[in-house]
Design a protein around this nucleic acid. Structure first.
Length: 277
DNA sequence: CCGCGGGCCTGCGCGC
DNA sequence: TGCGCGCAGGCCCGCG
């Protein structure tokens, strides 16, 4: 489910509970998610202190005092719930991982479809970890600009929808925010990536930044609601302009078109055939 | 190398 | 009420 803004919201929600905290108890209730959970999961975490939480693309990186780094991905259905100073009433069948801090806070990781992952690396090896090494620039960072997108799209025959979903072009975009960005940019999702004009690519860069920034802000305001209460992180109310709006009127000023749904690479794409060319 | 389709999993909502 | 189907916001792999 979660794309970059949701993952960033989860990271920010975890920050006050985990940063500086020592893990008292770490439990993995099954051996695998998408990949095996390390068999020394408990041993490496219990007694360890968390020094920081980072995000790279859709991955959360938990930095520990002994240079252990926990790589967490939420997949399609991963969720994190914080129980501040208390414990969950029940552990459901999809509640695969628990972290309990010495402050008595419980963090529960729930993932029905189990496309998520928890694995280990070390501080020295993060940059070259196989899961991370091929990921493109962070869209909200300094290294993301129209030149890198031009290079990524140059000669590409695949549709721009697929090229933006490709994490090597730019990090963190998923189905929703690609649809949103292309709708805003007025670019047809089936247009070949290599056929985008310089002007289109130059327009796309700030649009991608803005779509993601606004979504992170929406997530941030949702965080306020549960900083004092127990809360599930990352699934905030957010309304989309194109995504999941099939059959409804295009919101673009003076367009008058209707949002359509098509299938590209077996995924739904929502777009306006009237104003996206 | 590239682009596409299938697979991994479970749950939900819909039509019959 | 039950059943089967299509759908779901990610990602990897293998094939041509």
């Amino acid at each position: 489910m979660p794309e970059l803004p949701e993952v960033e919201t989860v990271r920010r929600g975890l920050l006050p509970v985990l940063e500086g905290a020592t893990i008292r108890t770490a439990v993995a209730r099954r051996a695998n998610l998408r990949f095996p959970i390390p068999n020394d999961f408990t041993k490496r975490l219990e007694g360890n202190r968390i020094t920081g939480l980072r995000r790279r693309s859709k991955y959360i990186l938990i930095d520990c005092e002994d240079r252990l780094v926990v790589i967490v991905h939420l997949g399609m259905s991963g969720r994190v719930t914080i129980y501040k100073g208390t414990e969950p009433d029940t552990i459901g069948k999809h509640d695969h991982i628990s972290l309990i801090t010495e402050n008595g806070d419980h963090i529960l990781y729930t993932d029905p479809r189990r496309f998520g992952l928890w694995t280990f690396t070390t501080a020295d090896a993060v940059e070259t970890h196989p899961l991370l090494i091929n990921i493109g620039p962070e869209p909200l960072g300094n290294s993301f600009n129209s030149n890198v997108l031009k290079t990524a799209f140059s000669g590409k025959k695949s549709p721009i929808k697929a090229a933006l979903l490709d994490q090597r072009s730019v990090a963190g975009l998923g189905n929703i925010y690609v649809c949103e960005a292309l709708w805003r940019a007025g670019i047809h999702p089936e247009k070949q990536a290599g056929h985008l004009t310089s002007a289109e690519i130059e327009a796309l860069v700030p649009i991608i930044r803005d779509v993601l920034t606004k979504a992170i802000e929406a997530g941030g305001s949702s965080l306020k609601d549960y900083t004092q209460a127990n809360g599930e992180l990352g699934y905030f109310q957010h309304s989309f302009q194109a995504y999941d709006r099939e059959g409804t009127k295009c919101y673009k000023e003076g367009c008058g078109g209707t949002i359509m749904r098509i299938i590209q690479s077996n995924r739904s794409t929502f777009y306006c055939p009237t104003c996206q060319h």
